[in-house]
Design a protein around this nucleic acid. Structure first.
Lengths: 339, 339
DNA sequence: CTGAAAGCGCTAACAG
DNA sequence: CTGTTAGCGCTTTCAG
């Protein structure tokens, strides 16, 4: 049945216009293996003369793949995800995959985002969050974990692909930076979750290696409010502290408020280091020294791992840890000599 | 052909298990009109006993609707979009629509996000950005504009649905707040784009109404760096300024840095008001007085407008402006008496 | 409310 | 490389 002269063009119209078979058009569409240049060009010309857009629905139905991947983000308010997502897309787009992101919030129907992805029939999942236990149970599609996560708590110690920044090393770099400046009373504002735990370990390792006793406050939420509260508790209990290593940048900003309230200036009285090198850290008014976990690269590597997994479901699990860098700004300096 | 005893269950399996017809299952799935409770429950029971998930691909193919809407965001780094999106989803989800968001960045293949949405065959578009001219040309699906936009510049003055916070009123509230505190030398840090222009107008209107001459700096980007630069220019040219109304919160944070550099304290020497009431404004260390545009409500209203438009493509265009509120925090106070 | 029937636009397998 | 042939799982008539 030839073209209908109405509606959106279909693969059939393209084939006719290019003077080739429907199958050949299909081949060209998904980056054909052995198609002559002449025919390929004819098809491509027909495609944009007609303004043809392949129907993803039809192709998904026929091929049983949606060419879609779901990305689970902790919280859209934490801009950390932006670079991660950009990196991920930079490798997924060229492969024809569309990444769609959702954060951990329940939708209006009370369904969790993973159910949403499954309803969408995504081909794979990228987990860039510490999801509540159970959320990933019974998921059949491949999962790539991006970022440091508490896999054990999920019952997922098993063969998952994991790509992350080395949070433990990052916190060690941050702590060593302060120690190198001469600080001795260095405390940690801890956060929960995979990255939080790793960062705490890094801080503790650096302290012990220097023969110092670690002190931490917090350990719950990783918000500005939590950072403020933890810093208040810390400063009240240990007023002699001259250095603070926060689990992330927003907590560090919370700490700045606590310090200012106590009449302490940064970095003259107390130095503060954040983590994530978020846009926040670069604001001149804050100028936080921070650990750059290179989340764009983490995203790109996660995308690579995903494609590899999709190509070979039986391949051995991929584990990759990217080394972070410390970005020194104005919130750290040598400790005061008078304390 | 009855069930295959393998694979994912289909509507056919559900029908069989519930002892009803395939058509009835289809009816139940999309919120049937006249289905008896008994049958409906039987179908629902069968659905979750089987773990059945409808195939969106099949239903999209058959119904020619994807039940998907694309949301175009300016920049994921600006957390303003988070509440907008949540509001939008709160009304779209229950209606069965899935919102997928992208920001203005080109994808790895150099395609713009709107092309991506079109390739995805979204049923409608929500524009929460000032897109480059041409990006929306020839789009056939319904478009709802969320937020104040320069529709004229897009050649889109025509019948589009628009839901926005009243940015002009917001800036007027901010300016009047400062005037009410006794400030007279109040300047504006301007931003470009729809909201930027409206906010500038609001500031100017409030100044003129008080018999004062408006002064603005900036007018380009709306980033922290731009806010800093504009504030520097402003303070060098007009050092007598005691109040600053910024086009948004990040620009206000840029201004804080410029003020501190000049030895001016906030709010004792100079008061600063932001706009958007972003999480940033609430950080204790910044405590910015800011205009809350109620973006969650804007999102919800945009969702409502979208559903109405989808239900009736010929309805008259919907225009809605939501009134903002001023959130007073620590960055504003009476002007110094000694200047 | 049921059941049958006809596709939606594409992929995939195979014989030419 | 071409052309044919089946469907993928669902929606939509339409007559019962």
């Amino acid at each position: 049945m030839p073209t209908d002269a109405s509606q959106r063009p279909t693969i059939y119209d393209v084939a006719q216009r290019a003077g080739v078979s429907k199958s050949l058009v299909s081949l060209v569409l998904r980056g054909a293996p052995h198609v002559s240049d002449a025919r390929r060009e004819a098809v491509e010309a027909a495609i944009d003369e007609l303004g043809y857009r392949p129907s993803r629905a039809a192709s998904a139905l026929a091929s049983q793949r949606t060419l879609t991947v779901g990305v689970l983000i902790d919280d859209f308010h934490n801009p950390w995800f932006v670079e991660l997502l950009a990196g991920l897309r930079s490798v997924l787009d060229p492969a024809g995959y569309t990444a769609s992101a959702a954060d951990l919030q329940l939708d209006a129907a009370g369904r969790n985002p993973v159910e949403g992805f499954l309803a969408q029939h995504v081909d794979a999942l990228v987990i860039a969050a510490d999801p509540p236990a159970g959320m990933l149970d019974g998921v059949e599609v491949p999962i790539v974990v991006a970022g440091t996560r508490e896999l054990g708590a999920l019952g997922l110690e098993t063969a998952l692909d994991v790509v992350a920044g080395d949070d433990e090393l990052g916190a060690r770099l941050a702590t060593e930076h302060l120690l190198g400046l001469g600080h001795r009373r260095v405390a940690h504002l801890a956060g929960r979750g995979g990255p939080g735990e790793a960062r705490r370990r890094g801080y503790e390792a650096a302290m012990r290696a220097a023969g110092l006793e670690p002190t931490a406050a917090g350990g719950g939420a990783t918000s500005e409010a939590a950072g403020y509260a933890a810093a208040c508790a810390l400063l009240d209990a240990r007023p002699e502290v001259t250095g603070i290593v926060a689990a992330n940048d927003v907590m560090a900003v919370g700490a700045l408020a606590a310090l200012r309230e106590r009449g302490l200036s940064v970095p003259d009285d107390v130095s503060v280091v954040g983590h994530d090198d978020s846009p926040l850290a670069a604001y001149r008014y804050l100028a936080l020294t921070s650990v750059d976990g290179h989340s764009r690269e983490v995203g790109a590597a996660a995308g690579g791992a995903l494609l590899a997994r999709l190509a070979d479901r039986a391949a051995p699990p991929h584990r990759e840890l990217l080394a972070p860098d410390l970005v020194v700004r104005g919130s750290t300096a040598r400790p005061p000599t008078t304390r």
